[in-house]
Structures are given as C-alpha cells and as structure tokens.
Computed example of a mutant assay.
Amino acid sequence: MSLTPTTVVHADLASFVSFGEALTDMIRVDQGHWRSRSGGSPWNVAIAMSRLGQLSAFAGGISKDLFGQAIWQASADASLDLRFIQQFAKSPLVAYVHQLDPPAYAFVGDDSADLHFRPHALPAGWRRALRWAHFGSISLTREPLAARLIALAESLKDEGVRISYDPNYRMSMDSRYDRTLERMCRLADVIKVSDEDLRGLFRSRDHHLGLAQISAWNPRAIVMLTLGERGAQLFHPKADLSAAPPPLDHVVDTLGAGDVAMAGLLYSLMNGGTQDPEDHLRWAVAAGAAACAGAGVDGLSAGLVTSLIDQVQVRRAEMA
C-alpha cells in the first residue's frame, strides 16, 4: 500500500474503526442502464462517522483498479485515516443492486481484494488509540476474512474496546451464519437491526422473535431497531424508546440510510457522555433522515443532523 501525494495523514490514529467490506454498488437505473457508486455497509459507517466529526477509519481490503481507486479517493475526500485501507492486485467486490425498494443485491467477488485483508498489517499502535470498533455485513460471511474479523472482534472486546454490530441481512446469511450471529450479538455493546433483518436472520415472519433472542443472548446490549419510514426503536438499559423521523419534503435515496442512522447513534454514544438515551435515538433518526433527504453519506454533516434533531419526537416504545 502506498500513500498518494494528496493523502492527508492524521496526526493521531483513528479512535473509531469500521471493519469489513468496501465495494462498488452497480445500481440499476432502468432497463439496460446501471450507475456505479462506492459503498459497502462498514465503509458507509466509517464515512458517516468522519462526516459527523469523529476521527474515523475503514479497515479493509480494496482492489487497485479503477473501482478500488474510486473507493480510495472517496475515503480521502471524507478525511478517513487511509493507513487502515489495504490495496491488493485482486478483483473488486461488486454488488449489483437490481431493485431499490426494498433493496435487492447480488454480490460478485471470488478471490476479491476484501478477502485478503490482514489485521496484523494495520499501523503500529492502532489498538492503543482505538475506543470503538464496528463490524458487520457480508464480511462476516466471506471466508477466510470472516474468521479473522470475528477473532479480532473478540480480542478487542477483551482489551476493553467497545464493539458495535450490524448484521445487515443478505441471502447468504442462512443457517450457516447462525453461530456467527450469536457470537457477535453476545459480545457487542451496540446492535443495530431492521425488522427485515430480523425476519431474514431468524427465518420468521415475526421480527419480535428475533428481538427476544438477541435480548436473551445479551441483555446488557443497546439494540436499535430501524423501521424505515416509521423511524426506529431503541432498547436501552435505561428505557425502551420509539421515535418517528422528521417530515421530509422529498425522499431522494434511502440506500445507506440505515448505515448513517447507525453512525448517528454511535457518534452520539461516543461523544454524548452520560446524556439520556432519548438524545442518542434522536441523533440516529435525524442522521438517517438527513441521508434520505438527499445528502446521503457524502453530504452528511453534524450541522445538518442537528438541524433536524428537534423535529424528532421520542416516546416510550410500543412494540412495532
């Protein structure tokens, strides 16, 4: 890996690192037309955290071709700590998004660059600087990467690092994923799931069954349940809460909104001290709304989110 002349090298190592995959989304616009966009749930979370003002890094492998270079440049533009990105002369990981509402994906990436990520090659001293590590998505289904990341999450937890987890359900997460799901839920401090995630992960039409199982595995975890246009619920040791998103004149794009909501929650938890769980949920829902309004991950800012926070109404949760 080499740094380009325009690379910004941070004086300090990142205190927040999101581990997993960065990929290229090929989004179907209409019959026969597609557009590409850099993405991947863990990468989106890292970008959103940086846009909100947290010293942030994405740790993963990307290709050296034009797709990988686009991810590298977008990471640099978002002021990520680029020392955590590893580039390999391997094929890119690509997600074909053939349907947006709800999103439907097909992934292509045999022996692709993401699988060659090596935690031992991260910059010296990175563990001492780390306060929070995020994991999830298809990286935890793709061997040999998955085994490395799970072992890393467990070792970081043992060192006192806080862990967040977003399974981000995809079709490859069948019964073979059950053990990983349980392991990650048991060690995570914060878990984010959608109602669709729960139905897929637990193979049940009733997403409440999945919520109950996660609670049984880890009753101390903070769990955020995202419900699309209906907002989100937060199950916190201090309170169970529900919030509706602020009214938006126009929803431009919902792709990645869940990742941005996760970043809003994590940013608030990392920087909000002992503030009430209501404030953490407001941050999450306002961030997701900001993404849907057209800002996406790239146009996100703390100022934009705070302008929407007062419009988020929080109440005691009623089971959705």
Score class of each variant (00 low, 15 high):
Arg176Asn: 05
Tyr177Lys: 10
Tyr177Thr: 01
Asp178Gly: 12
Arg179Ala: 05
Arg179Tyr: 09
Thr180Ala: 10
Leu181Ser: 11
Arg183Asp: 09
Cys185His: 13
Arg186Thr: 15
Arg186Ile: 02
Arg186Pro: 07
Leu187His: 03
Ala188Pro: 01
Asp189Met: 03
Val190Asp: 09
Lys192Val: 05
Lys192Pro: 09
Val193Tyr: 04
Glu196Lys: 13
Asp197Tyr: 12
Phe202Ser: 00
Phe202His: 04
Arg203Trp: 03
Arg203Asp: 01
Arg205Pro: 06
Arg205Phe: 01
Asp206Leu: 00
Asp206Thr: 00
His207Ala: 12
Gly210Arg: 05
Leu211Phe: 07
Gln213Asp: 13
Ile214Leu: 10
Ser215Cys: 01
Trp217Val: 01
Trp217Met: 07
Pro219Leu: 08
Ile222Val: 09
Ile222Glu: 00
Thr226Leu: 02
Leu227Cys: 12
Leu227Gln: 13
Gly228Met: 04
Gly231Asp: 14
Ala232Pro: 03
Ala232Phe: 08
Leu234Ile: 03
Phe235Tyr: 12
His236Tyr: 13
Ala239Lys: 11
Asp240Glu: 11
Ser242Lys: 06
Ala244Phe: 04
Ala244Asn: 01
Pro245His: 15
Pro246Lys: 02
Pro246Leu: 09
Pro247Gln: 02
His250Arg: 15
Val251Leu: 02
Val252Asp: 07
Thr254Asp: 06
Ala257Gln: 14
Gly258Met: 05
Gly258Asp: 11
Asp259Arg: 02
Val260Met: 06
Val260Ser: 01
Met262Ile: 02
Met262Pro: 04
Met262Tyr: 05
Gly264Leu: 07
Met270Lys: 10
Met270Gln: 15
Gly272Trp: 15
Gln275Arg: 09
Gln275Glu: 08
Asp276Asn: 09
Asp276Trp: 01
Pro277Arg: 05
Asp279His: 14
Leu281Ser: 10
Ala284Thr: 00
Ala284Leu: 04
Ala286Ser: 03
Ala290Asn: 12
Ala291Trp: 04
Ala291Gln: 13
Ala291Glu: 01
Gly296Cys: 11
Gly296His: 12
Gly296Arg: 13
Val297His: 08
Val297Thr: 10
Asp298Ile: 01
Gly299Tyr: 15
Gly299Glu: 02
